[in-house]
Write a protein that binds this DNA or RNA. Structure first.
Length: 433
DNA sequence: TCTGGGGTCCTAGGACCC
DNA sequence: TCTGGGGTCCTAGGACCC
């Protein structure tokens, strides 16, 4: 049996751990640049605020309904995620961290649980309570035979006790008959529209469709989903870390930019970020791409989008070298006279740092470079991100994103650690200190 | 009247996830 | 005035090889 553990309204829950004033109130968390609403508390969902809504369209509505809007604090969420995952790892030797707020747990190897529904439910409750106690994050847990069914169970769990076990054939059939097609993991908007047109509206109807028809219209991926709904395992748990196949970074600017060197500073910072990610998984990249774009939402301004890729002569994760290539690429695609909204970089064709194709005419001593970057990373880790930077990143972040409602980095910065005013406590409460 | 068959690799585009 | 960012996988079609 597989459990899917899903944190409830994860970003909002992280904020609430450190700010009790956010409890029982509508709260939303915004995307980068305070652009869109990407997380909503239950109270905010109840007000009808949709996922992904642009903030500017809802500003008035939020004010009127006393909704608190917060900038995203990914440093905090990343750290809280690690705490949740470490807690979950106590419950099984086989865990797959699926996203920042979700993990699959293989329960089949656990002695004295087996396939007994009551035992599975109790174990789920124990996991849920422990995570809450240790991290302050509420979770929902779905338990069933396959990944797709566990996903179904977790959505049902959100609506009742927080834990849902789908075990017997009858239980599963009933659940699927009441489960909307668009809520199935792997069925997105396009497939939902297509299936509805073909009179398929529930998970049960989808699972009952003929294999060849599903594969023809939804590819092999769709067929796997259908089979998993029928209880046939097609998607394995990935409990060993899988290295990424590409790494990229792109961000919209807080304000539109026109100057080449401002774009270059931003690009250099994104390259620094990506090359650090490459090094952390001991990868080197063979292909690098840079792109620039104006604001596509503003039809009154001249639009420009351009990208350019190169194959590197020697696969690399060396920030300094990659920034040089970034400069050349940006130089080629940059055009004067446009108001740029974003710049981005992407690395692909990744291979292992320990076994890649060297180049006879390479002028860099790769071994030295790897050691140099190891030191660079260790200093930045010890003394904080940005302690060491490349000059190309610049000092004046005129391009930085908008974050007007940012909470503290409670768990990752000593200066921002949560403090409690004891005077206030002794005067205003009966707590015995 | 009228030009084979079998294969690989790469890319662009489209679908999906959180 | 104001609209996120980071990924994965599959397929079709073209170029190329023998």
């Amino acid at each position: 049996m597989l459990a899917l553990v899903d944190c409830n309204n994860f970003y909002v829950s992280c904020e609430r751990v450190f700010n009790p004033k956010l409890e029982n109130r509508p709260v939303v968390v915004l995307s980068n640049n305070d652009g869109c609403i990407v997380a909503r508390s239950e109270e905010a969902k109840a007000l009808g605020i949709p996922m992904g809504a642009p903030l500017f369209q809802y500003k008035e509505f939020l004010d009127k309904n006393n909704v608190i809007a917060l900038s995203s604090n990914y440093t905090l969420y990343g750290d809280m995620s690690e705490r949740v995952m470490n807690t979950l790892a106590q419950f099984t030797p086989s865990i797959e961290i699926y996203s920042i707020d979700e993990a699959f747990l293989d329960l089949s190897k656990l002695a004295n649980i087996g396939t007994d529904s009551h035992k599975l439910f109790d174990y789920g409750m124990k996991i849920k309570q422990t995570v809450y106690k240790w991290t302050g994050i509420p979770v929902s847990i779905g338990i069933s035979h396959t990944k797709v069914l566990s996903k179904v169970a977790s959505k049902i769990a959100k609506k009742n006790k927080g834990v849902c076990v789908l075990n017997s054939q009858e239980e599963i059939k009933e659940a699927l008959a009441n489960f909307d097609i668009e809520d199935i993991w792997g069925i997105g908007r396009a497939y939902t529209n297509f299936l509805r047109k073909n009179k398929i509206n529930t998970a049960y109807e989808f699972a009952s469709a003929p294999d060849h028809w599903i594969q023809k219209h939804l590819t092999i991926v769709g067929l796997r989903i259908a089979k998993e709904l029928r209880g046939e395992k097609c998607i394995d748990i990935e409990d060993q870390p899988v290295p990424r196949k590409s790494v990229g970074s792109q961000k919209s600017f807080g304000e539109l930019q026109t100057d080449f060197f401002v774009l270059f500073n931003a690009l250099s910072s994104y390259i620094d970020e990506c090359s650090r990610k490459l090094r952390s998984q001991k990868s080197v990249a063979n292909i690098m791409g840079v792109f620039v774009a104006t604001n596509p939402f503003n039809p009154n301004e001249p639009q420009y989008f351009q990208s350019k890729f190169v194959r590197l002569p020697v696969p690399s994760n060396f920030t300094g070298e990659l920034i040089r290539y970034g400069y050349s690429l940006l130089k080629e695609i940059f055009r004067e006279g446009y108001k740029y909204k974003r710049v981005g970089v992407i690395f692909s064709g990744l291979s292992s740092q320990d076994s890649f194709q060297y180049n006879l005419f390479d002028r860099l001593n790769r071994e030295k470079v790897f050691r140099l970057m190891e030191i660079y990373d260790s200093i930045n880790k010890k003394y904080g991100k940005g302690t060491l930077r490349f000059s190309a990143q610049g000092t004046n972040k005129v391009w930085k994103m908008k974050q007007e409602h940012l909470s503290e980095h409670f768990t990752t910065e000593w200066e921002e650690i949560l403090t409690i005013n004891l005077d206030h406590f002794s005067k205003n409460s009966s707590v015995n200190l």
